[in-house]
Amino acid sequence: MGTPVFKTAIIDRVFFLRWEAPPSHEEIRTVFTQMRDVYEELKPPLVLVASLSPKSSVPNTEQRRHLSNLQSDARPLFSEIHAIVEGNDLQYNLQRVIISGINLVTRTYDEAYHRVHKHADMVAPYLSKRLGVDGVKVINEARTRGVV
């Protein structure tokens, strides 16, 4: 059957989402249902940390539209969103341009709310500040679970 396109995990009020490849509309719907369920169960504050595999292709126009819709739908559920774009500088810059485009379309271009990082370790201080948790420990657990 192949590698799943995404993985999720909840660790200390952080919803981790790992994309191994650009998602389909059905996969986006599945992820949003999980997000909504976690929101209803745990209540805010919640933080979303989404990471993108360096092996992932650049999403096409339709996939970008679905990701844009997901971001709009997910915004009310999370106090902060952190995107981790791994890979070489070219991959990082290409994916960052796409994320910036999605942010503009969804009107969520807000550095205090949505940040893009090159490495998961860069997210740890934000988790500590926003949630009062040990951000390094949370990121290490996420690594163990394969979601960053």
Rank of each mutant, 00 (worst) to 15 (best):
R64F: 00
G101Y: 01
E41C: 01
N93S: 08
N69G: 13
V147A: 01
Y113T: 08
P54E: 14
D110E: 12
V31M: 12
R36P: 00
L67Y: 07
K43I: 00
S56R: 04
G135D: 04
T3A: 09
A124C: 03
R143P: 04
S53Q: 04
E86Y: 14
Q34Y: 07
E40Q: 09
V47M: 11
Q34R: 15
S128T: 14
V123P: 02
V85D: 08
N60C: 05
R18S: 03
E62V: 12
Q71M: 11
V5I: 14
K118F: 08
P45L: 14
Y113M: 08
K43Y: 00
I84S: 09
S100N: 15
L104K: 15
E86F: 10
S72T: 15
G101K: 03
R13E: 02
S57E: 11
N69K: 13
D89L: 07
S68F: 00
A9N: 10
N60D: 10
E86M: 10
T108A: 07
E27L: 13
V147C: 05
L94P: 00
Y39E: 06
D73P: 00
M1H: 00
K118D: 08
K129W: 03
L77W: 01
R107A: 04
F6P: 08
L131P: 11
R145K: 15
P125G: 12
E86R: 12
E111M: 15
Q91T: 13
K118I: 08
E86I: 06
P125E: 13
V5T: 13
R64D: 02
Q71R: 11
F6V: 12
I102D: 00
V147T: 06
T8G: 03
V58Y: 11
E41R: 05
H114R: 15
V97C: 06
Q91L: 14
P22H: 09
V38S: 10
F78N: 11
E86T: 14
V5K: 12
L127A: 10
D73L: 03
R96A: 12
D73C: 01
I81F: 01
P22S: 09
D73R: 04
D37A: 05
L127Q: 11
A142I: 04
D89M: 08
R29V: 07
L48D: 03
S56C: 05
P125N: 14
V147Q: 05
D12Y: 03
R75V: 03
S51Q: 01
A21Q: 07
D121L: 04
A142D: 06
D134E: 10
E62F: 08
G146I: 07
N140E: 13
S24F: 07
F16C: 05
P59G: 04
L94C: 01
P76S: 14
P44F: 01
P23M: 05
Q63T: 03
L42G: 00
L104V: 10
R75H: 08
G146C: 08
S56E: 02
V136T: 14
Y113S: 08
I98Y: 11
A9I: 05
H82N: 06
F6T: 12
S79L: 06
I139S: 12
H25R: 15
L52N: 15
N103E: 04
R107E: 07
S68H: 04
A124P: 02
P45I: 14
R115T: 10
D37S: 03
N93D: 05
F32Q: 13
D89V: 06
T106V: 05
V148L: 15
V5F: 08
S24Y: 07
H114A: 14
